[in-house]
Design a protein around this nucleic acid. Sequence first.
DNA 1: AATGAATGAGATTTCATTCAT
DNA 2: TATGAATGAAATCTCATTCAT
Lengths: 227, 227, 227, 227
Amino acid sequence: MAVPDPASATHPQPASATRPDPASATRPQPKGTTRRRAPRADALRNREAIIQAAAEVLAEQGTAVDVREIARRSGVGMGTLYRHFPKKEDLVHTVLLRDFSTWARAARATACDAEDPWTALTAFFQQALTGYARHRAIMENLALTWAGPDLEGVRQLRLVIEHLCDRACAAGLLRPGVTTDDLLLLLVSLGHAVQITDECRPGQWNRLLCISLDGLRATGHPQPLPA
Amino acid sequence: MAVPDPASATHPQPASATRPDPASATRPQPKGTTRRRAPRADALRNREAIIQAAAEVLAEQGTAVDVREIARRSGVGMGTLYRHFPKKEDLVHTVLLRDFSTWARAARATACDAEDPWTALTAFFQQALTGYARHRAIMENLALTWAGPDLEGVRQLRLVIEHLCDRACAAGLLRPGVTTDDLLLLLVSLGHAVQITDECRPGQWNRLLCISLDGLRATGHPQPLPA
Amino acid sequence: MAVPDPASATHPQPASATRPDPASATRPQPKGTTRRRAPRADALRNREAIIQAAAEVLAEQGTAVDVREIARRSGVGMGTLYRHFPKKEDLVHTVLLRDFSTWARAARATACDAEDPWTALTAFFQQALTGYARHRAIMENLALTWAGPDLEGVRQLRLVIEHLCDRACAAGLLRPGVTTDDLLLLLVSLGHAVQITDECRPGQWNRLLCISLDGLRATGHPQPLPA
Amino acid sequence: MAVPDPASATHPQPASATRPDPASATRPQPKGTTRRRAPRADALRNREAIIQAAAEVLAEQGTAVDVREIARRSGVGMGTLYRHFPKKEDLVHTVLLRDFSTWARAARATACDAEDPWTALTAFFQQALTGYARHRAIMENLALTWAGPDLEGVRQLRLVIEHLCDRACAAGLLRPGVTTDDLLLLLVSLGHAVQITDECRPGQWNRLLCISLDGLRATGHPQPLPA
DNA sequence: AATGAATGAGATTTCATTCAT
DNA sequence: TATGAATGAAATCTCATTCAT
């Protein structure tokens, strides 16, 4: 098994952080009304600062974080924060959407770069575990996939995985019967392993990944997967 | 791969857990002895009720539970709870000790029953994931193995795993280089998968287990485990 | 000024601890009723054990002590304690009565022993500060003299002081205008000093006592006491 | 003995205590500066209200007060109180620091006003007992001098006493061997007397003070102070 | 529009007193 | 009658959300 090391997988990639994101669904002001000259620049800067700070904190501590910590790090007041995101959940939602999307985009790119379907798959896992697996809120939310409706970003990510799965399957490289859901669950599972061992035994999860990937290969297994 | 189904693996088995003297609960106190002996049937009942309720709640919600919920479920007042367990942590500790020990004992028994080392190993995982993997507090604590000193119960469990690992290794059934720590991490990892999917897709983790176990086998892998 | 050292002044003097105290006003059972053969011996032993333990604990920690500590030290259960003393206050009251009386009795004896009125006075203070001043509950209660009606024991003690005051006054040794209340207040005042410095500077209060007594002498003062 | 009556000695004098900028409370914020400056008039008002209420309550009841009582009296919610003072101890500390400092400052001023060292000394005691002796928390803390490290305010006060002691000693007015510690202990001692008798016999402590001061004079005592 | 102070419902823990055994 | 377990009202401290400035 080859587990490549995509150096680009550095974890919290603000990426579009500075882009104004004109398609944003949660823009505070309905454009059609009277007031016009209101300086939107400040508000947008604040909004992005909040999201950026929230992303960092949520990555570090998960969704149980104190909202004041986010306000503090973003340099805005609580009022401003709550003007942009009336509920803590809204902010979390926004951050997750952004980070899942960024991740999905990066993953798609990496997947396309790889010529070999198997390499694409392993690269995806390697990248995911090196990068976003450390993002506590991301992993928390990914784990909720089985409990409720997915975030848009999760759906995007799932599509990438589905693509990887299909490709490897079609190439006869993937063990028969393996589904996108299996790969997703494996991802969350290994992501948890990463979080647990990251501080004390930074590389240990690599061995688990290797084992799992070998178990996913098309050949060498005594019996088919159970239903 | 044969994944046996140890029917005995139903999760919280208080059974003869801590106090193995069920007769003392009704015995009318052997008054003739030196005034001191008083197991207090009802106190024991309460203590057990608290532990039992705590075990349930901790299994369901993890260590972040509200103590009052435990008091409510066990039918005692806060004062009673705190008489038996002066700190929330004491109660958690007691429950974890009990449940880890029960688990370790059951696991050891199952391990001894199996003649084949590989069967023993797979049976262990099967049992663990069918049973205690649903216990949130247990899994939380197991994940802390990499962050701090282990509970006594965790050590017992680790011994069992070590034994299984050694046996399978000696029989040449286990992939070279696999360690007890790998198996423990796999356990926590898959345990997380169980918790995530338990409600919506009860059996899905079985597939992941199968994959992982196949990855753990001695043969059929293109390259050795990474350091 | 001579400050004698009455060696007998060792603080918690159980004294009447073992005596059944037939004059007790708080005896639990009205003697005139039917039931007769009830074993009073046990009850009395318990009662005394409680009082003794309470005295120790109250001396050490004052009236803010936890009732359970008293029960623990006396070796009886809470129920027994509350049977004898329905309110914490009742127990405190009883102990204070006992200890104040013991103190007053000892003080009276010492006072009578001394031939010189001034020696009697100084001996009293010396004894008090060496002994009962460390009894936190005693001192707490003595301080309440100015806030409410006195305990019987306090009245006894006050009588002793009054006697000492009168004697020294009649002998022309005491500064004109000094009252029993002045001496009592001085006692509480110095008692507080003892408690404060007892651990770190065990003898310091002696200097304060010396100063105060010199200020109490009949002669050598530039002007009379203020009203 | 002349015990002057410094009329200014009325007890809790917040005056210009901590924040000497009363104008800032109404100034409408100099918006032109770098967005950051915001003393927040109402927050300061609340902070002061809390400190003021705490000072009153601490003076009345000592450090054992219920924090909620302080919140109630200052008219703020618990959250506000804890925003300003994260621990009860912080609030107590702040109040003690403020009140000790105010006291020390006033005492120093009074001490400097008096030309005669003896008058300075008596004026200090008179002022202390008329004023801060009623402050239960202040006295509690002063009593802890012998048990642990001093608060900054206590050190300031001790310096004042030291100065008074030295001056009187140098002038040959103070009894040989009297130390700053003696005077401090006398202060706490008499302070206790004040608290005890304040309600029922408001002036009684004056007599004790007179007696003690006479005992402190350089002349008229039969023997030196004990070690 | 921005700020950050204010709010108050919980969460853990203690202790005088009562009550079942 | 003796026991000590049970009770539940405080007391301290936290944090998502609102509101005055």
